[in-house]
């Protein structure tokens, strides 16, 4: 159970399995990008997904909130199966927050407006309440004093923390992170990772595509290694790093751990 009252409240009454993927396949044209992926994520679990570029790891987590469509297999998120039904897709997206490599904040809105937009229009929350929630999470990511500024006036690390706060304002049950630190200056990586660690400690269910192995060691329950659209290795972090089984994993780890 979460220690954060707002997150805990969102968790109450949720199904036990956060994400269930059964035989998921996806093609981009002729290119077979996801090949028979099976994955189960329990509530409160933290998964780190890594792998070489083009291995399908981003596509995998983007399938979870239907930013990408899968063509074969089943994906059940928070008890809702993803199909062509737009209503269900919106339902899933309300419960799944996402942070992107390039933040994707809305440049024409202030930080506060970025955070209150979806709660007000999707959750029909009154403006005052939405602003209170937004300030709660902006304090959590340690930038409440930037609320009146525009995204363009913030540093990359600050923008990514706002993006995390914006996602949290919808009180999601699951958070997806798609390479949240790879577009950041080296000095700013840590502040974002610290925020994510804190979120993990609060008990959020998290799926992170990242190459930050320190982060993986610190918070992940499981590390998944993907290559050529398949999950080829899955283990708890210590075993994964100290004793990789697959040749491709060994090669990959030797490339990124100097």
């Amino acid at each position: 159970m979460s220690t954060d009252p707002v997150i805990a409240q969102a968790e109450a009454g949720a199904p036990k399995l956060a994400v269930e993927m059964v035989g998921v396949n996806k093609w981009y044209g002729e290119f077979h990008v996801l090949r028979d992926v099976n994955l189960t994520v329990e509530r409160g679990e933290r998964l780190v997904i890594c792998g070489p570029s083009g291995s399908g790891k981003s596509t995998l987590i983007r399938c979870i909130n239907r930013l990408e469509e899968h063509q074969k297999g089943r994906i059940i998120v928070d008890g809702i199966e993803l199909t062509d039904d737009l209503k269900r897709i919106d339902e899933v997206r309300r419960e799944v927050g996402m942070c992107f490599q390039h933040f994707n904040l809305f440049p024409h809105l202030t930080i506060l407006e970025n955070c209150t937009l979806a709660p007000m229009w999707v959750r029909k929350m009154p403006k005052k309440e939405a602003e209170e929630v937004a300030m709660h999470f902006l304090e959590k990511v340690k930038i409440p004093h930037q609320a009146k500024k525009y995204p363009g006036q913030l540093s990359g690390g600050q923008q990514q923390r706002v993006a995390i706060a914006r996602a949290l304002c919808m009180r999601p049950r699951i958070m997806l992170f798609d390479e949240p630190t790879s577009a950041l200056d080296p000095e700013m990586v840590k502040e974002v990772l610290d925020t994510m660690v804190e979120l993990a400690q609060d008990g959020m269910t998290m799926l992170c595509v990242t190459h930050e192995m320190g982060f993986a060691r610190q918070v992940a329950n499981r590390v998944i290694f993907m290559d050529a659209g398949q999950i080829i290795e899955m283990n708890e972090p210590n075993a994964f790093f100290s004793n990789p089984q697959h040749e491709r994993t060994k090669l990959f780890l030797s490339q990124i751990l100097h």
Partner: peptide
Amino acid sequence: YEGAMALGLP
């Protein structure tokens, strides 16, 4: 578009 979709905006 993706940022907006991920927030559940129809």
